[in-house]
Design a protein around this nucleic acid. Structure first.
Lengths: 340, 340
DNA sequence: ACTCAATACATTAACGTTAATGTTATCGTT
DNA sequence: AACGATAACATTAACGTTAATGTATTGAGT
């Protein structure tokens, strides 16, 4: 039922129903100031004519695009992919479109993505900045565009953010390994998320201290490349470390792969626990104990915060910390383990 | 340098430089009909004032949003996540924004996503329809919005599409298993991509026939749920099948997980080869032989076709088939295998 | 000197929608 | 009967940009 050229507009519906464009607009938005029958008639005709609202025109006039942007590192990281999927669902449920912008963890690219979000006039941005003091973030702040930090916390409490309880997650991970007999533990991270990494280690450390693990048996490292990682793991292995806590599942898998590829068989001597519980969302065949951090809730909360900020820009910044829990998949305790 | 309220517009720049809005527009777009010095001056002032183009206004006037949509099943499937990432990169490189719309493999939702793409006035759509005769596709076709099928081919050659050489992939997979001693082979698929699945099996079958594998030793199944899958695998196991070709890596991992969880140890008796070579993009620790299908090229080609169609809607439909290759990761040949 | 063309701008209108006002008809009040 | 209130529309203008023209200035060609 589309017109020969171009799409059906309010103008066409107005002509067809004998009212003005404005009345049609109000009818289709179910506003007041319109009689029940006229409203229904207009809506019926609109449907018959196959009308779809032109959000571009609507946006220009109303100043709202009903679109948000998500700026993250890369969709090739399953963590972000899952988050993206969940956010997309919630966004669409609320009538928002989602624009995906990947920084590839490059600050320069990240700036371009913020500029893209700005020029596309999105109503708000969800961002996992790729570095601690990202210039993209400064740009975002000075632009006045509402944004919420996703899975990121920056000291200072000046921004809205949603994170999981990193400390608690680290504590649970540590205690779990200890409960399964490990007495020599290490945490490894090679993803530079300063705050989360430190908090997770603090919790991890506390669990060790609570179990009276000697300080010398609690290790932490942030190696920067594959070579350093292998070196570090070899060193820990020599020191008798058996319990390994990885910053996240993806990194855990990555280092297991490295160990396996190195051909030394070291992977058999380490029990590994990860973080994020990606296996709760994707059915991959490498099980791993992990910390479930409610990504679904994180997604919904983030959009909720963003909408609040869009609606009320002067609100005080809000930091939401979601509780975590442990999911055991029996990788906390390899057969060789010294203690029951 | 932003104005007190709202953003800098062409109007502000015009006022600041003493020319008209139109001249500013042309200057910023590097059009002709403008002197070199004026152009540079305007661009300089625009930069100083922190101008960012309002794509909404631009879109409304020009009829082009410089935004494309990708409609696929879910970002939780790494295959789509990888594709999405690659497409996003290429899109941004060409100045396009990317809107992500996930159908969750539900036809109803898919229709809503097409409607969203339409109302958001995107310039074009990349879609992996969730079913063979998707109503969303019909809607898309009748809307006149340019679109390209991604990783999907529909008989009839009426749409643009980019796919990999499914037949060749199946052939390579089959021959690889045969070369490694397997004489009793099966292909399994539980993802209802009719065309690809059948083509891959045809190639697979031909490889078997070329190697003079008896027809009775060539199997194919499309089980519909986990129970059926396990039943099928058990049956094949009893029939002496050792070489397993999975429709894609994700499904391969999924069925390996099922086998492992079933506790019968069957996974040790099957050699598995997958498709898509996801490990070429994500570093996951479950290696698997696979067919590399050049997702990067697929992404770029898809956008290229889409841009051609946007620019020249009357072009004859184009089907691009990308060559594939085999990546061996030693999962083609388990230790137990009967033949050298 | 006159025409013609090219250069470098300006002017006008429009994209489709919606916010802000106007206007008219109807009805209840006193 | 005059008034105010309300319902149900219409009118106007605007969002920021760009396409389509329009116009003044300059310079070359004959």
């Amino acid at each position: 039922m589309a017109k020969e050229k171009g799409r059906v507009t309010l103008h066409d519906i107005a002509a067809a129903t004998g009212v003005t464009v404005n009345t049609v607009s109000r009818a289709l938005k179910n506003k007041e100031d319109i009689s029940r029958e006229t409203c229904e008639r207009i809506q019926r005709v609109a449907r018959e004519m196959g009308y779809v609202r032109n959000y571009i025109a609507s946006s220009l006039r109303s100043g709202r695009t009903k679109t948000i942007a998500m700026i993250s590192g890369s969709m090739m990281n399953p963590y972000y992919a899952i988050l993206c999927d969940l956010i997309q669902r919630e966004a669409v449920r609320l009538g928002y479109g989602l624009m995906i912008l990947c920084s590839q963890d490059d600050p320069e690219t990240e700036i371009k993505m913020v500029e893209m979000a700005l020029s596309r006039q999105v109503d708000g941005v969800l961002i996992t900045p790729c570095s601690f003091e990202s210039p993209a973030l400064s740009l975002l702040r000075s632009s006045g565009l509402p944004f919420v930090l996703l899975s990121r916390y920056l000291e200072g409490d000046t921004d809205d953010c949603v994170i999981c309880d990193d400390w608690q997650g680290g504590y649970l991970a540590g205690r779990h390994l200890i409960d399964h007999g490990h007495r020599n533990l290490a945490m490894i991270s090679f993803h530079h998320v300063v705050y989360s990494s430190r908090k997770r280690f603090e919790g991890f450390q506390q669990a060790c201290l609570d179990a009276e693990i000697p300080t010398g048996n609690i290790h932490y490292a942030e190696p920067e490349n594959e070579q350093q990682i292998l070196l570090q793991l070899n060193q820990w292995h020599a020191q008798g470390v058996t319990g390994l806590f990885s910053f996240c599942d993806v990194e855990a898998w990555s280092l297991i792969t490295m160990l396996e590829n190195s051909g030394q068989g070291l992977e058999k001597d380490f029990s590994v626990i990860g973080f994020d519980n990606i296996l709760g969302y994707i059915n991959f065949p490498k099980p791993i104990c992990s910390i479930e951090c409610q990504l679904q809730k994180e997604a919904c909360t983030a959009i909720d915060l963003l909408r609040n900020r869009i609606h009320e820009p002067s609100l005080p910044p809000q930091q939401v910390i979601l509780p975590v829990s442990l999911v055991c998949r029996d990788t906390c305790c390899k057969t060789h383990s010294s203690v029951p």
